[in-house]
């Protein structure tokens, strides 16, 4: 139905222009407008920080530092990107700094060489038993997904979180992490396959395994 996308676009434009006004007011020092921006994005920033740092204390610091830095640097926000993309960039930097600090004995590298091929990641080839969202309670499912993402190396989970959870583009992700487009794509594929592997072990229909790749 052609009218639907048009209506959606109009609604989307309204939301976007509403946010532009909010950002503009916040830039001029309107505390209420900045609080509204915090309320809008605090959950997502905190979730992203937890997923990247895998540490509650660090994530709390990242949340706070992200909004403090955002307020401080708001005058330099040009509006060329969306406000949330700009905010994400700050949150990612803060999260990576926390990771590096915590692992001061081991450098957290986002561009280390990855030579494994995709086949070696794919071992479990089995359909899932129904829908996990229906089989598990919210809390239980959340714990399973947290544990799976926690087991990924920082390079993989950061790219996965930005691309597949926060829905940043490949280009935005590459720019935020200082990686090439090709590096983002290869890390994302490996992250997706590793998570798929871990979740399939839990969610697979028992006794239904098909031959794996040799």
């Amino acid at each position: 139905m052609p009218s639907e996308p048009a209506a959606g676009n109009v609604a989307g434009a309204d939301v976007a222009s509403g946010e532009v006004l909010l950002v503009e007011r916040a830039r001029q020092g309107d505390a209420e407008a900045f609080s509204a921006l915090i309320s809008k994005y605090e959950r997502r920033v905190y979730r992203m920080a937890r997923q990247i740092t895998q540490n509650d204390e660090d994530a709390e610091d990242v949340l706070q530092d992200t909004f403090l830095k955002a307020y401080e640097h708001l005058p330099s926000f040009q509006g060329q990107s969306k406000f949330y993309t700009w905010l994400t960039r700050i949150a990612v930097n803060e999260s990576l700094m926390k990771l590096r600090k915590r692992k001061s004995d081991r450098t957290v590298s986002l561009d280390e060489n990855i030579e494994t091929d995709e086949e070696s990641i794919v071992r479990e080839i089995a359909v899932w038993d129904g829908t996990p969202e229906e089989r598990y309670g919210q809390e239980e499912l959340r714990a399973i997904l947290d544990e799976a993402i926690q087991s990924l190396k920082p390079i993989f989970r950061t790219v996965f979180v930005l691309r597949d959870v926060e829905e940043m583009s490949t280009e935005e992700t590459a720019e935020m992490l200082g990686l090439s487009i090709a590096a983002v794509k290869s890390r994302l594929l490996r992250a997706r396959l590793q998570l798929r592997e871990k979740l399939t072990r839990i969610f697979k229909r028992k006794g239904d395994q098909i031959l794996g790749y040799v």
């Binding site: 089995a126 359909v127 899932w128 996990p132 969202e133 499912l141 997904l145 993402i149 996965f160 597949d164 959870v165 997706r192 396959l193 998570l195 798929r196 979740l199 399939t200």
Partner: peptide
């Protein structure tokens, strides 16, 4: 299963 993995997150 990869699509489902992405969608569940």
């Amino acid at each position: 299963t990869t699509k489902k993995t992405i969608n569940i997150y």
